[in-house]
């Protein structure tokens, strides 16, 4: 994919694709910032329940958050294995990353379903609209990352990942870590801080 690109001259010495990923992540920051801002503006503005206190399950999501953070650790190991040309390590750690990411998505699917059963939908109140939109777009980012990592894993099984092509892994890792960091912000704001909101009166006071 990028054999020639690695060695071409660039003004800064940075690879084009890596720079592109950084610029994209900067742009994606604004995307999530806008969604998070919407959530915070509408915090406590729901006219009717269910409210966060009724359904947010902090312990459960703490587990899934831990799983996602561990997937970042596995991603670091996968990159390090690639740089060391440890073919077995590449496959194992990419696989672990994908499994952990998959578990996170499974948790989210379970959570969405449970919330739906407890009456929280997109249309029921502003909490539902902002919660599902924000976490849904984050979940979509994770899902996209899983497809990307799976493609890398296939390359890994073909033996096409090596120190010469480690940039392919590194760029995916940048994306993956970014998605993790966004989740830390979301977890802090939506669960730890706003997760115990009751009705409109509390937030107003």
């Amino acid at each position: 994919m990028a054999h020639a690109a690695e060695h071409e001259y660039t003004t800064t010495g940075l690879n084009h694709r890596k720079l592109l990923m950084w610029v994209f992540l900067g742009s994606d920051c604004m995307f999530f910032a806008s969604l998070i801002a919407t959530y915070m503006v509408y915090r406590g503005q729901s006219l009717n329940g269910p409210y966060p206190i009724d359904i947010i399950d902090v312990p459960l999501t703490t587990i899934s958050t831990f799983v996602l953070l561990m997937s970042s650790f596995a991603m670091v190991q996968a990159l390090s294995a690639t740089n060391a040309n440890n073919q077995r390590g590449i496959r194992i750690w990419l696989f672990v990353t994908i499994i952990l990411g998959g578990i996170f998505i499974a948790f989210q699917a379970y959570e969405f379903n449970a919330f739906k059963n407890e009456g929280l939908t997109l249309g029921v109140n502003l909490f539902g609209a902002t919660f599902f939109t924000l976490t849904g777009f984050h979940g979509a980012h994770v899902a996209l990352g899983l497809i990307w990592l799976t493609a890398l894993l296939i390359l890994g099984f073909k033996g096409r990942l090596s120190p010469a092509t480690s940039l392919d892994v590194e760029i995916a890792a940048l994306y993956w870590h970014f998605v993790d960091i966004v989740w830390i912000v979301i977890f802090t704001l939506l669960y730890l801080i706003a997760g115990f909101d009751t009705g409109p009166a509390i937030a107003a006071g």
Binding site: V23, F24, G26, S27, D28, M30, F31, A33, S34
Partner: peptide, 8 residues
């Protein structure tokens, strides 16, 4: 790249 995500 910074402004368009907001309108998005």
């Amino acid at each position: 790249v910074l402004a368009f995500p907001v309108i998005t």
